[in-house]
Design a protein around this nucleic acid. Sequence first.
DNA 1: TCACTTGATTGACATTTATCAAGCTTGAAC
DNA 2: GTTCAAGCTTGATAAATGTCAATCAAGTGA
Lengths: 256, 256
Amino acid sequence: MRTADLERIRTLQLFSGMAEARFNELTSGAYLQNFPGGTTLMYEGDPVDFLYILMEGSVELQGTWNDKETTLAILRPISTFILAAVVLDANALMSARTLEKSQILMIPAEGFRRIMNEDPIFAVAVAREVSGCYRGLVRSIKNQKLRNGAERLANYLLTQQVRQGGAAIITLPHEKRTLASLLGMTAENLSRAFASLADYGVEVNGPEVKITRPVPLKRLAKPNPLLDNHAPPGAGLTGKAAKEMWPPANCLSGAA
Amino acid sequence: MRTADLERIRTLQLFSGMAEARFNELTSGAYLQNFPGGTTLMYEGDPVDFLYILMEGSVELQGTWNDKETTLAILRPISTFILAAVVLDANALMSARTLEKSQILMIPAEGFRRIMNEDPIFAVAVAREVSGCYRGLVRSIKNQKLRNGAERLANYLLTQQVRQGGAAIITLPHEKRTLASLLGMTAENLSRAFASLADYGVEVNGPEVKITRPVPLKRLAKPNPLLDNHAPPGAGLTGKAAKEMWPPANCLSGAA
DNA sequence: TCACTTGATTGACATTTATCAAGCTTGAAC
DNA sequence: GTTCAAGCTTGATAAATGTCAATCAAGTGA
């Protein structure tokens, strides 16, 4: 493994507090692997032998039931995934596949758990990391149960706008059908949802989306930090909530 | 606080490994409080000053947006709740209210975090507990996005049947409108979903539900350990997954 | 006993979402 | 250039879900 990659993950909150020796021990057994797009890294129900850390590219987490599939999250670097299964030595509840050529660091789960038991600072960091993932999922469920399709899309667009720097034109980072699955709708309905947002100043041109009238769009979307990971650090959040890192390094915060 | 209560929570996986002195320190600042039914313990967005442990009664966790409300989980003793917010010292993402007269142990969050930092065994236990909660939520989202209303109800009934000992007649533990909200539908549609399950041998009589033909019901429901917390320990799960406690003491495993 | 409240159910209807089929665009391969 | 495939869009229709209003049933208290 290259030193540059080690330094990149060393800066993650998950690893930043631990002693150098432990960090070296943890990563000494790790692999850095390249996968082409469309590779399934793991199937639902599989035993989990590694903690995965996405370094480059993007990964989709999926759930399946009865021949139906849904996207639970789309990850961007640097993100850990299937951490909870690693902590509990349990089988995966989601499949993971690359959406494009990706570079992924794989840390053996066994060693991860051993070091978690030996290094108290690391154990606390793991607890904090999983807690952040948990809160991402709570937001995701609320988003899914409380909003309809157009509302979910509108909030997705506003979130992306913030994350991409706030300009009026944003670029959809994935295929529209993947986005549809993430938002819990069909590709056809995503098209219609975009069309319905035209009244609110949303202009679509392939993967480019222009938000010409953010005020009415926000009036429709009603973004809310209790459902969306919207705000940059400190903005709109006071006190304790502001302490949470943004964007969180953890897995599901990106899930609409 | 009564010794009997302390002994009850001492047996939880979360606390069972920690040193006696630390456990005493943790609980010395705790309150055991009684609340009547319908009491809101905490509102969404509130700062979280306590870890809550439900000792008796039942508690509903809710999410709100735009004057709509949804039930995220219904807790039964003994369950912890808002653990992730305590770990991160963040604001609550869900409201909590008692559904009936309830007894709740409140452990100051500040002390909880201090002891988590001091006691490595406890820190690992917290990481494991939150991981279990996380996996409960993953199941919950998959259930919500992949199944329709009748399928969610069918699986809820089968899960309840297992939890209540496997007899043909089960008792719905909550009001039907609360159940409807948990299952992500209106009370009216829950009524219709029950009616549609009559073809599969489901007979409803107030809060009593009789499952007369489990085989066709299961053929419809297609229960699956990757979506449902169905199986007793070891049953149907081999190897690693079987190690997870069932039913988990943690918060959202009960969420259909 | 009798109103009265609360929760549950039912029917009629509206809205939302999914499904299926067809057509459109775009870009790569030949 | 032409062909082709993949992704996207559109329209027609069906299915699922929500809303509103009315009714019913059970339990409560005067």
